[in-house]
């Protein structure tokens, strides 16, 4: 079983596909786990529910988090991660459609590592995701 490097929390299947498309070029798409809502994201991180077979020690290297999610919102997921000493070292990048200043401020207050507004333009979008993947998986140094 491959180690999951990226946890993508995104409820919109099209966005999921486009994001995966963009990352595929970098050869990392097979190390991505996609969950559709905040609840699943937390289950994944805490190895609960359908992810109970997963070992919690294998933490993802990056979480891509949408804010507007069913059940548990992105903000709440972020809050949970950043307030848990076992999880808070994982870089979280908010990937959202919202460019509301309130959201930006709020997420940074909660300790988000980066905030990216998904561009509508497909070229720009692809470029942004690509660079994002490269940066966080290859360039960035992690605290173990």
């Amino acid at each position: 079983m491959k180690e999951v490097e990226i946890l993508l929390v995104e409820d919109n299947p099209e966005d999921v596909e486009l994001t995966l498309d963009a990352l595929r070029g970098e050869n990392i798409s097979n190390k991505i786990e996609v969950v559709e809502d905040g609840e699943q994201a937390l289950e994944f991180l805490y190895s609960e529910g359908k992810y109970s077979h997963r070992k919690m020690e294998y933490k993802p290297k990056l979480i891509l988090l949408d804010l507007k999610l069913p059940k548990v919102s992105g903000i709440e997921v972020l809050k949970k991660i950043k307030s848990d000493s076992k999880l808070k070292k994982i870089p979280v990048v908010v990937l959202t459609s919202s460019s509301e200043e309130g959201d930006i401020v709020k997420t940074y207050e909660l300790g988000v590592n980066s905030y990216i507004v998904k561009p509508v333009n497909s070229e720009t979008f692809r470029k942004a995701i690509k660079e994002l993947g490269l940066y966080w998986l290859l360039l960035n140094k992690y605290a173990e």
Binding site: N12, E14, S98, P119, F125
Partner: peptide, 18 residues
Amino acid sequence: VSHDLRAPLRAIAGFTNK
């Protein structure tokens, strides 16, 4: 509007591109 209107647009743009 910010959130929901952009998502489908992105999809249209992305998939047309594809």
